[in-house]
Write a protein that binds this DNA or RNA. Structure first.
Lengths: 248, 248
DNA sequence: TTGTCATAATGGTCATACCAAAAGCACTAC
DNA sequence: GTAGTGCTTTTGGTATGACCATTATGACAA
């Protein structure tokens, strides 16, 4: 079966070429591309095509540009989170997204707890304890402790020694940030409860007890998810008169 | 602490405006934007600025453009996979990425098996069986059965009724496509073995036996991962004289 | 030493011209 | 009536040239 021949646009071709240079390691984060006018000469195209390609790569998160002497176009460091963050608001619009994401986050975090208990080293434990102290201090001041919460979950993810998992968790955490903040803000009780669970988790992980770590994490994330779903249900009720109650 | 004031570029502003329209639902997948020249008039900027913004949104996966009568710029449907696929080659360059991704895929797929067994409906089961037949037919013809394999795993993911999970699995599958094809190509034995495991899984899921589904899936993905890691180790050995053997 | 001004480098924006692709319509030949 | 051809229009694709805005640096004067 013959397929339609798709003519490739210049700007597309340039985007792909530059991506390839980044891929092959010829271009590293921090490297500076030649000036636009020079690139246009080298590639024997107009500056327009160059700009369209560079603007695309810039908005995609690959490059950044600066004006003036010493200005130019520089290669940025690529992470999954950097790539997805421009899209997060769009993904959040889907009403089911949050609920589904909570479900995915539940089993990702349980797996994090398991791997962290198995793989953590002294440095990881130090970070975990620092995060707990940070959260504790913030709560004592009357704050929600969200930053400490973020730091705690990040430290756990780092302790798994799996960067793909880290990126996924970071992404989940960011996408759920409003909801998580709301949860911790809802009452001082919730913040303190989360802190207690963090401490229990830290202890299980320190002991290398992966079974217990999983159980505590399951309870912890389940609590949070329950509140978030409840808040969403209340919000939807106020707006439109109440969704069906979900069986859990 | 005062922060530097960042001057916003026209193309950036236009990108954000269009993203916002998509976010608010004013623009839906399939909707057509006004022609470039008209947009330039409406926004009182040059066509260049419009093009730079539209090219960016296009390369980011939000829009697609067509030339000629009835042509124009159309809004695309946004999924995580669409967004990430331009970056997949970059992510694959990280040597540890594949190994880590295999690990993440293992527990995602186990969770899929569990949820599929609990949540599948008749339609899901039909799709699952169709995928098995497709793979069986391909193997009988002497092919690898990769398409049937893809269809099978997709049908399972759909049966979870969690689209976030589906997207993540689709992404993992795509990122690992070369490796998975290599695995199925390595011998007819591997393809047949995979097919047998698919059949066992289908049976467990049909029976609603989530524990058994998880066990079979663990074995299945573990087999694949083991071969993929082994192939990578052999490849690295050929290139550079042998990595340390990983304890498993 | 500090402040001011000029210069140069590089991205940012605009306008204009022309090309390429595609659909629709009218006309002609069979 | 049908198929083929050519023309027109619409819209994105590409090029060119001009000018603007920002920024760092160096020279010069107070």
């Amino acid at each position: 079966m013959l397929e339609p021949v798709k003519k490739i646009r210049l700007y597309e071709s340039i985007v792909k070429q530059i991506q390839k240079l980044i891929l092959s390691g010829e271009l590293q984060p921090g490297d500076r591309l030649p000036p636009e006018r020079m690139l246009a000469e080298q590639l024997n195209v107009s500056r327009t095509a160059i700009r369209e390609a560079l603007r695309s790569l810039e908005m995609m998160g690959f490059l950044e540009s600066k004006v003036g002497v010493g200005g130019g176009t520089y290669v940025k460091k690529i992470t999954i989170n950097n790539i997805l963050s421009p899209f997060s608001q769009i993904l959040l619009q889907n009403d089911d997204f949050i609920v589904e994401l909570l479900e995915v986050r539940l089993f990702l975090e349980i797996e994090v707890a398991r791997l962290a208990a198995i793989r953590r080293d002294e440095e990881d434990l130090k970070k975990i304890h620092e995060a707990i102290e940070e959260m504790e201090t913030a709560i004592r001041r009357g704050e929600t402790g969200l930053l400490g919460d973020n730091a705690f979950h990040k430290a756990l993810a780092v302790a798994t020694s799996n960067t793909v998992l880290q990126q996924l968790l970071l992404l989940c955490g960011n996408l759920l940030e409003l909801e998580r903040e709301e949860h911790l803000s809802s009452s001082k009780t919730e913040s303190k409860k989360a802190l207690i669970q963090h401490k229990k988790l830290a202890h299980a992980i320190e002991q290398g007890n992966d079974k217990q770590a999983q159980t505590i994490m399951r309870d912890h994330i389940h609590d949070i998810s329950k509140t978030i779903k409840s808040n969403r249900a209340n919000r939807a009720q106020q707006l439109a008169g109440g969704p069906d109650e979900e069986t859990e």
